[in-house]
């Protein structure tokens, strides 16, 4: 935090009571335009020890219990000994990489294997630093027309790009999110229905992240369950 240049600019006096044992309290630097909106005065609090910890222990035990039962009922897969001489068809990466493997099926390795994951990780890292979604302002709150045009153009271009590479798997979620996004532009904060208001209130970052989440899920599910020999389509119950 101390490295944050913003902090040096703002002249805030931190007041800390020295006798912490008597009245332990939270310290927070509240910056301009970056309010965590903490309102402590009406917040009920609990002691970490033992109350919060007991909750935590319960969570730990529930997780452990579930894992124990899964482990009792389902055996971890083990196939024949590794044999470099014969390649299974299809050879699949661990499930969490199957989205990437699915992309590799469409795009050259540099794109799917390096560019996309690199961009994703980079994007995730910079999220908090680029004023993304900090305000949580609705996408259509300002410049509705201009934004609508830009977003429509980007969407169309992106869909064309996906079509060019024949990536139907990724195209469907993109269209879904895109349609929802453009549709939400028609609403306002005074729309009659809750859903409409909810959709309207969402900022751009929400839409992008949701698109990413759905793409990730769809690609992983497709790679895990719907890909067979030669990375061809297959139904999960066929083998």
């Amino acid at each position: 935090m101390t490295e944050d240049p913003k902090m040096q600019e703002t002249k805030i006096q931190a007041e800390v009571q020295s006798d912490v044992r008597k009245n332990p309290r939270r310290i927070a630097f509240i910056l301009r335009r970056a309010s965590p909106h903490v309102k402590t005065q009406d917040d009920a609090r609990v002691m970490t020890y033992p109350t919060a910890l007991s909750r935590f222990v319960i969570a730990l035990e529930v997780a452990f219990l579930l894992l124990v039962w899964i482990s009792l009922l389902v055996n971890a897969p083990l196939e024949g000994i590794a044999d470099p001489m014969h390649t299974p068809n299809p050879a699949k990466a661990p499930w969490y990489f199957l989205g990437l493997q699915e992309l590799l099926h469409y795009f050259p390795p540099v794109v799917a294997g390096v560019l996309v994951p690199g961009l994703v990780v980079g994007a995730l890292i910079v999220i908090p630093y680029f004023n993304i979604n900090i305000e949580g302002e609705s996408l259509w709150a300002k410049d509705r027309k201009r934004r609508l045009m830009i977003i429509s153009a980007v969407l169309v271009l992106f869909c064309l790009f996906l079509l060019a590479y024949d990536v139907i798997v990724a195209l469907v979620p993109t269209l879904l999110i895109g349609v929802l996004m453009l549709w939400s532009a028609r609403f306002s904060s005074e729309s009659p229905r809750l859903v409409q208001r909810w959709l309207f209130s969402k900022p751009l970052s929400f839409w992008i992240m949701s698109w990413f989440l759905i793409e990730l899920t769809v690609l992983t599910v497709v790679g895990t369950f719907f890909r067979g020999p030669g990375w061809g389509w297959i139904l999960p119950w066929q083998s």
């Binding site: 083990l78 196939e79 590794a82 050879a91």
Partner: peptide
């Protein structure tokens, strides 16, 4: 095993 070997092979090829 075969599963791990080929999964890692596929992964490392990326």
């Amino acid at each position: 095993d075969q599963l791990s070997f080929w999964a890692v092979t596929v992964g490392s090829n990326i």
